[in-house]
């Protein structure tokens, strides 16, 4: 059950548990243990990326759509960015917003689980993970029903006359709502894992010293949960930035599409789209890795690895 908690648990786990440094000298045993897994990752993770890189530089045979020849055409990147820069902006913006909202929703839940739930902790944990088992596509479609023009949310907002435009589906609001929902558990679990390890006595001591709930939270509780917040924001932002299912099922035809939609359609719907799609994928990965790197350097520790 604690499966997902471990995801969050590990990045920061080393700091409090004082894990023993490995003592055994390498030798054959280490390499035998490593070999099968590393080979798998080399063949099915590294090699595909190399292939993707070469595809992103290929050119089309003129007059033979869908056929490519080896080339070093960096123009694909230029064409991809010229055509899809609004998609990039939307991906980063929507993912950023979704990460922010997920954090706002996740923190109280994780906090309550860690400090207030008592014997209900396990039950709440199951409740956070359980929705995973209904397919996420089905749940996203359920959001389309909930947010539809005849659904409860729009009806209430229209009754109160507070919804400009009168719709939620087919707008960016629905896409961000869907992203927030789908990746919320990835925010909750790491924050919970780091709060669970925190000693409630330290927070009580903070309360004694500051005698103000908010100050205690800002100066004691929040800093203690930072490793979890860091892991949670990464686990939310990265998949959200690459997602295309929410934009496809909840968004509109053009104005809410994200990079993922561009990659998907270049691969599957545009004949000869492989090089552009590959260039788009690579750019997305580079942008995300760069952001993650800066973010981890600013806030994180090496323990994330």
């Amino acid at each position: 059950m604690s499966a997902l908690a471990h995801i969050g648990g590990s990045p920061s786990g080393t700091s409090t548990t004082a894990a023993p440094e490995p003592t055994k000298r390498g030798g054959m045993a280490a390499y035998l243990l490593l070999l099968p897994g590393l080979i798998w990752l080399l063949v099915f993770f590294v090699a595909p990326l190399v292939q993707l890189a070469t595809v992103s530089l290929q050119s089309q045979f003129p007059g033979y759509p869908g056929y490519y020849y080896r080339n070093v055409d960096f123009g694909n990147y230029g064409r991809a960015i010229v055509e899809y820069w609004p998609h990039f902006v939307r991906s980063l913006l929507f993912a950023g917003l979704a990460t922010f909202f997920a954090f706002v929703l996740a923190y109280p839940l994780a906090y309550a689980m860690a400090f207030k739930a008592g014997k209900w902790r396990g039950v709440m944990m199951i409740c956070v993970i359980a929705p995973f088992f209904t397919s996420f596509i089905l749940r996203t479609i359920a959001w389309r029903q909930i947010l539809s023009d005849e659904g409860p949310v729009v009806s209430v907002l229209n009754f109160l006359h507070v919804l400009p435009g009168g719709h939620i589906t087919e707008t960016w609001v629905a896409v961000v709502a869907g992203l927030t929902y789908n990746f919320l558990p990835f925010m909750v679990l790491p924050i919970y894992a780091s709060l669970e390890r925190a000693d409630p006595k330290i927070i009580e001591a903070g309360g004694d010293l500051y005698a103000n709930g908010f100050t205690t939270f800002r100066t004691v509780t929040l800093p203690m949960s930072m490793p979890g917040v860091l892991a949670g924001t990464l686990l939310t932002f990265i998949p959200a930035a690459g997602d295309y299912v929410n934009a496809e099922l909840l968004g509109s035809d053009i104005s809410t599409k994200m990079v993922g939609n561009g990659i998907e359609s270049q691969f599957f719907k545009v004949l000869g789209g492989y090089p552009i799609a590959a260039a788009l994928s690579f750019t997305l990965m580079a942008v995300i890795l760069a952001l993650v790197f800066l973010y981890v350097r600013r806030y994180g520790t090496e323990e994330l690895l």
Binding site: F45, L52, S281, F282, L284, M285
Partner: peptide, 17 residues
């Protein structure tokens, strides 16, 4: 790194390979 790579990049790269 595979966990820090968006799924769509993993999928796209595997497809090309």
């Amino acid at each position: 790194i595979p966990m820090a790579t968006p799924e769509i990049v993993l999928g796209a790269s595997l497809l090309t390979l």
